[in-house]
């Protein structure tokens, strides 16, 4: 019945693939949780971005690079990374409308509410894009430049 996966010889064994299919969504979701609650609890854009990047690394390890890069390509990663950086800079520049570079211009809201702290959650999202993109790009570079895996595929 599982002809599709049996034909696909790349990646690890069926057990690993099945477990990965179950866990990878949870890891991604946990990363997003850490990012979005960055201004309320420990964690934030950097930590969440690392976790999100790890979920993609997980995919590459389990399913082989061909299938995983279908989900998120190399140039897509680079664009996401640059987009994160541009976003962060844009938020910083938006501070000029409040008088200072990096000023928190949005309403601060109630403490401990999810929608609070002005520009901090937005900065976290921008950092998350940058870190996730950057870390995954480094991983891709290491995978693509490995001469052994070049021969293997």
């Amino acid at each position: 019945m599982r002809t599709n996966e049996d034909n696909c010889t790349e990646g690890m064994s069926l057990i690993v693939k099945t477990i990965t299919r179950l866990s990878v969504g949870l890891i991604l979701l946990y990363g997003i949780y850490i990012v979005l609650h960055g201004h309320l609890s420990p964690g934030g854009g950097f930590a969440g971005g690392v976790i999100i990047a790890l979920s993609f690394v997980h995919l590459v390890l389990a399913f082989g690079k061909r299938q995983a890069f279908g989900t998120l390509s190399e140039s897509g990663t680079a664009s996401l990374e640059s987009l994160g950086a541009v976003l962060f800079l844009a938020i910083a520049l938006a501070g000029f409308s409040g008088g200072y570079f990096f000023a928190n211009v949005l309403p601060h809201g109630e403490p401990h509410a999810l929608l609070s702290a002005g520009t901090i959650p937005l900065s976290n999202i921008a950092i998350c894009l940058k870190v996730a993109g950057g870390l995954f790009a480094i991983f891709i570079a290491l995978v693509l430049l490995n001469p052994e895996s070049e021969q293997g595929s």
Partner: peptide, 12 residues
């Protein structure tokens, strides 16, 4: 900010 912005836009 200017050179950083230039670098990121160029990368994008």
């Amino acid at each position: 900010a200017l050179p950083l912005g230039g670098a990121f836009v160029t990368a994008l």
